[in-house]
Computed example of a mutant assay.
Amino acid sequence: MVCRRPGQLRWWDGRAWTAARIVTGNAVSSGGAQDSGNVDRTWAVLSHLSFFVLPLVAVIVIRLTVGKQAALVRHHSSEALNAQICFGVLWNVFGGIYLAALLTRPQDPPFAVLFTVFILMLLTAAGSTVMSIIGAVQASQGRFWRYPVLWRPVRGAVRP
Score class of each variant (00 low, 15 high):
A112G: 01
W12Q: 05
G127A: 05
H75P: 00
A33F: 08
I62K: 06
L54Q: 07
A27T: 07
K68D: 13
E79R: 01
V53P: 02
T104A: 12
S30L: 14
L56Y: 04
T65S: 13
V59S: 00
V66G: 01
G7I: 06
M131A: 06
V93W: 04
Q8W: 05
A58L: 15
L72H: 07
H76C: 05
T129E: 04
V117K: 00
S47K: 01
F111K: 06
V117E: 02
T42I: 15
S132K: 04
G25I: 09
F118R: 05
I60E: 03
F111I: 08
I22W: 13
P110V: 01
T65K: 12
A44H: 08
A100G: 10
T116D: 10
M121C: 04
S78M: 09
C86S: 08
W91I: 03
V45M: 00
S78W: 01
A70V: 08
F111D: 15
G14D: 12
G25S: 00
L120T: 01
N82I: 05
A16Y: 11
L54D: 09
R74V: 07
T24I: 08
S30H: 06
L103P: 10
L122G: 12
V66N: 01
N82V: 05
A33S: 11
L54I: 04
Y98V: 02
L46K: 06
S132A: 08
F118C: 06
D40M: 00
I119R: 10
V28G: 03
I60H: 06
G95D: 07
L72M: 12
L114G: 01
A101W: 10
W91M: 10
L114F: 09
T104W: 06
T42A: 15
C86M: 09
D13K: 11
A101R: 11
L49H: 01
T42C: 11
V117N: 02
L81K: 03
P55T: 04
S30N: 14
A112Q: 12
A101M: 06
I97A: 02
L120R: 00
G37S: 11
W91R: 11
L64T: 07
P109W: 13
F51Y: 14
D35K: 11
M1S: 09
I62Q: 04
C86D: 11
R105H: 11
W91L: 05
V39Q: 09
M121D: 07
P6K: 05
I22A: 06
V93C: 07
T18A: 09
L81P: 12
H48M: 08
S78F: 06
T124W: 01
G96C: 04
A125R: 05
S77R: 02
A83C: 06
F118D: 07
C3D: 15
L120D: 03
N38F: 12
L49V: 02
L9K: 10
R74H: 08
L49D: 11
E79L: 00
Q69A: 05
A112W: 12
F94R: 09
S29E: 08
F52D: 15
S132V: 03
T65Y: 04
F52W: 15
V73D: 06
C3F: 13
V113G: 01
L103T: 14
A80P: 15
L9T: 05
A19V: 12
